[in-house]
Design a protein around this nucleic acid. Structure first.
Lengths: 197, 197
DNA sequence: GCGCAGGGATAGAATTTCTCGCCCTCGGCG
DNA sequence: CGCCGAGGGCGAGAAATTCTATCCCTGCGC
């Protein structure tokens, strides 16, 4: 019953890097720097005693072993996610609390987000604010503003204005940037963005 | 593709504690202190937002959720181990280098370990030594002596002398104490131990 | 030749994890 | 009834791990 395993952090780094074939892209997915990913992967390779990547001067390639390792590792993470969601649904299906500045509000339909059918499943409520600090204190999950920044280590998704003039900024913690809720909201914003009334 | 997961360390702590229904036993399996396991489990519970254990004044009980969580988590670790062994067989099937003091040697059959059929699959070679330091420097994987100590943070398995007088000590790093090789050797020692010639 | 993108190494900072010491509760036992 | 041991909780500080920030090098495109 004793398992002798490499550390999860290393494995996550490997999994992301192998999927993207890039330390840099993996790093941004994980919300850390490329150096950190590189180190974790190196550590993993050392602990396994085998090379998982071939470092080419211009990018990465999986070795034979790396190629064999990736699918089961991806599956393990998926299983883990599934098991975790099963007992703690909160973690991924919790609805977002949205912060929105009044300027951003003006660029969206008057009844947003209530008017947008599907969004009700992803948004719990919203408050009028432009304060990035509320993201850091977890009082809101994402913030919609008509630009601004800098946002430090927060993730930013820019929603281009269909009219051409000004875009919207969707800001959240890096780990939240790619989750279901964020994607749904961003997609909806993209559809509903409108020139100032 | 972004997974939001609790840390592997927490999960390992939970898995071991849930299997043993004891932080203390889990701690010794993992080679850390009970406090560390307790903290990791608490951290996991906090990150999931649910209680996994009921702490009774005299021991642990799994909550309903903990009960549901354990089997998939155990499976995940098993899968991970399998996948890792598949590409890096070294990690678990490497043969042991055994250290043995001359006194211990005298309590075993003259041709041990070569005489014991199955052991060839688990032992690479052996050297005559009683030096615990060689364990720490990884020059040997386990050490067999006719008693002694203290061994600090090393794991000790006592093999009782069938004659009744004196036992043998099997010493190794905590992480190795429960692996296939160690179990095979300990079992064989138990069978073959004999009073001094 | 130059700029840029992507990786590698390293040192130091930041965070996480572990240990240690002490507290509390409970059960068994003299 | 008092004492002891087992098991867990908590907090401070130490130790280990991980991350960042830099600077370097290589190869590509212009």
């Amino acid at each position: 019953m004793t398992y002798r395993l490499p550390s999860l952090n290393s494995l996550r780094a490997f999994e992301a890097a192998a999927r993207h074939l890039s330390f840099k892209t993996a790093a941004s997915e994980l919300g850390v720097t490329a150096g950190a990913v590189s180190q974790q992967v190196k550590k993993l390779e050392a602990s396994l005693g085998i090379a998982l990547f071939r470092r080419l001067p211009h990018g990465l390639l999986l070795t034979h072993e790396g190629e064999a390792y990736l699918p089961p590792i991806t599956k393990v993470f998926a299983d883990l996610t599934a098991a975790t969601e099963a007992i703690a649904p909160e973690i991924n299906s919790r609805k977002f609390r949205v912060g929105m500045s009044s300027a951003a509000r003006d660029k969206l339909p008057a009844d947003w987000p209530n008017g947008s059918g599907g969004l009700r499943n992803h948004i719990r409520d919203w408050v009028e604010t432009g304060d990035v600090e509320l993201l850091r204190t977890d009082e809101i999950d994402c913030l919609i503003r008509p630009g601004g920044g800098p946002y430090g280590d927060l993730a930013l998704i820019i929603i281009p204005d269909s009219g051409g003039a000004q875009a919207l900024h969707f800001v959240c913690k890096p780990g939240l940037a790619d989750c279901r809720q964020a994607r749904a909201i961003v997609q909806d914003l993209t559809r509903n963005i409108a020139p100032a009334r």
